[in-house]
Each structure stands twice: as C-alpha cells, then as structure tokens.
Simulated scan of single mutants.
Amino acid sequence: MEFNLPLLEKLTQTPGAPGYEDKIRQAIMDEIKGDVDEIWVDNIGNLVAVKRSQKADAPIVVVDAHMDEIAFMVNHIDDNGYLQVLPLGGFDPKTLTAQRVIVHGKKDLIGVFGGKAIHVMTPEERKKSPELDDYFIDLGLPKEEVLKYVSLGNVVTRERNLLEMGDFVTTKSLDNRISVYILIEALRRLERVPFHVYALFSVQEEVGLRGATVAAQTIQPDFSICLDVTLANDMSGVGGNKRITLAGKGTAIKIMDGRTICDSRMVDFLKSTAEREGISWQAEIMNVGGTNTASLQTLGKGGSIAGAISIPLRYMHQVTESAHKKDVQDTISLLVAALETIDKHHWAR
C-alpha cells in the first residue's frame, strides 16, 4: 500500500480551526464524493458520507475522524499592531516561542509568536514556564495596516510544512488530519459493505466533542469506531506506564481513556481482526484525555457498541507532530478489515 503524501499534505495544510472548518470540509468532500453513495453537511458543520449495504435494514456503523485542529482566536490588537489570542483547544505554551502562524483575516497573513528575549529576562522569568498571555503575534506591520485585514474574532492556525523524517511524517495538525487521511483511504479500499458505513468527519472536537455529540443523536449508530491519535511518549525520561504507545509498533486499539471505557465486544473484535489479518497492534490504556468515542458510545438512543483505533503520535498538541508511516498503514488495514467483516462477529453479550 503506497503512502499518499500529496493527500496528507493537502489535508494538513488546509486550515480548519474549531467552528471554522469550511475549507477543510470542502477539501475532504472533493476527495470522497466519488467513493460514497450519499453525502451531506448537518447544521453544526459535520460532513457525513455514506456507503450503503445492499441490505436496506442492515445496522449502522459510524466511523468518526474529527477534522478540526487546535488553533487560536484574536481577542486584542494593541497600539503597536501586535495581536493577543485565546486558545481553541489545548496547547503547550512553551512550544510556541518564535513559531510561525497564519492569521486568517480578510486575507491570510504570516505572523510570528513573539515574546521577551532571554537577554532581558529576570532570573525568575527564565525559570518560569511561559503561558499564552506571555506571547503576542507579530505581523510585521503597523497597526493601521493590521486593521485593514485583521478583526477581533479572526482565527489563527499554525504554519508548518509536511516533511518525511526517516520513517515518520512530521507537520502540524496530524491531530487529527492523519485520521481524516486514514478514513478517506479506507473508503477507497472498501470492497464489502455488510453494514451501512457512515463516515463522519466531525467538527469542534478540540473544544468539547461538540460535532460528534450532535451526530450521535442524529445518526443513532448501532456500532461506532472512532479514529484519533494517541500519545506516543516513547522517549528518554518517560516511564513505561506513561509511554501509552510506541511509535512504529503498530496501530493502537483503545481499551480506555479519561472519558471512555470501550465496549469489550468491540475491543475483542478489533483485536481478533488484527490478529487474523497479521496486522501489528498495541493496547491503548490511559486515564487522561478523551475522544469522540465518548459521545458516539453514549448519546444515541440506547447507546452504541463503541471502540476506537488510535494512531501513536509524538509531540501531540505542539507546533509539529510526528507519526510513523507503518502505524498509519496498519490503521488503514485494520479499519478496512473490520468494516468488511463486522457482520461475522458474535456481538451478543
């Protein structure tokens, strides 16, 4: 299976801050419209694409990949034309120093996260962990020029090209565009569709699982598989139980996270599918964080049999994130095999 770098580049470089997913939604729609039977956008902005089973009364399985990315919103412009921002999603502020961003105003403007130079910091300031309020965005323009293009409420995304780094791909927004990539590739490879497959490219996950909350109540899935990234803290100084997953050791089958205990039947199904198909996998067990699995599991009528397939990711919610290409390919293989054989599993308790 060839890795489609041009597609991943398109997905990671297209902006889509929470609540402002228009451009990434259109990019996804352009990619999948020939591979599905039906497609629509709901009121909150979720993109839903369906591959239908030949059996009209077949159960529904939702596969979710949220399309928003962590970002910022302009909430102040000072007398020198510098911008201050609020976060849209969680950031590690210490990674923002001197990093480039794109301010999406009347036209896109490149900016830099600026802050006090270390040369003029006090000893106490040098020891202090920076916070977002310690930074400003410098557009290199005087205030009168800034105001021609930038308004309060404009969103800001990171600026970072896609690169191959050894066996990894590294860029911004792999959380969660790598899952969007996987779902698109899976839709193209599906040959057998025993259940109706609803591909859900959801909005506003980074600010509270909002899109999936709406979709779960609308679609009422019988089964749910969430695609998202997970922590790969496989580096020096991190203890074994804090590593969560290891990059390059295969896709991760979620057992639990801070908001979900996955249905044991779905966990068993994904494990047995991976083992039957010879797909490398590892268990994901963590007591922090959360994904759309929580909404999809609980908010439909009667709930759904829900689980998740996760992609190990280094440097999550930082300026650049890195994923091992083998883990990505293993995730595609597991998802396709699961969707094509989901009717063969014994689902009764």
Rank of each mutant, 00 (worst) to 15 (best):
P194M: 03
K326C: 02
A212T: 00
T122P: 08
K55F: 00
T293P: 00
E145R: 08
L174T: 01
I184P: 00
E2S: 15
E144K: 13
T122L: 00
N241S: 10
N80C: 14
Y149T: 14
R100V: 04
M67P: 09
M256D: 09
S151D: 14
T218R: 04
T291W: 02
N287V: 15
M316A: 14
T293E: 08
L335V: 04
L299W: 02
S322H: 08
K33V: 07
A98W: 09
Q282G: 11
K172F: 06
H66V: 10
G237F: 12
G34H: 14
A27C: 01
N241Y: 14
I77W: 01
G166H: 08
R349Y: 05
H76Y: 11
D167R: 13
T12K: 11
S173M: 08
P59Y: 09
L335W: 01
E131I: 09
L313F: 06
S53H: 03
L231V: 01
Q217C: 02
V85R: 07
N241H: 09
A65T: 01
V207R: 13
E205C: 11
K127S: 01
P6Y: 13
I32F: 13
F3Q: 03
S264H: 01
E131R: 00
E205T: 12
S151W: 13
M235I: 09
I44F: 05
D257G: 02
R158K: 12
E31G: 05
C226L: 15
D175R: 02
A308E: 04
A348E: 14
D108N: 11
V267P: 02
T273V: 04
H324G: 09
L270Y: 00
D228C: 03
I261H: 12
L86Y: 14
K172M: 04
S179E: 07
Y82C: 03
Y82D: 06
E145F: 04
K344W: 09
I178K: 03
F168I: 02
L334I: 14
G89W: 12
V36P: 00
A337E: 07
G140I: 06
M67C: 04
D79E: 15
I225G: 00
K10V: 06
E131W: 05
D257A: 00
T293N: 06
K55I: 03
A199V: 01
V101S: 07
R25G: 14
R349T: 14
M121Q: 02
N46H: 07
R189C: 11
N292M: 06
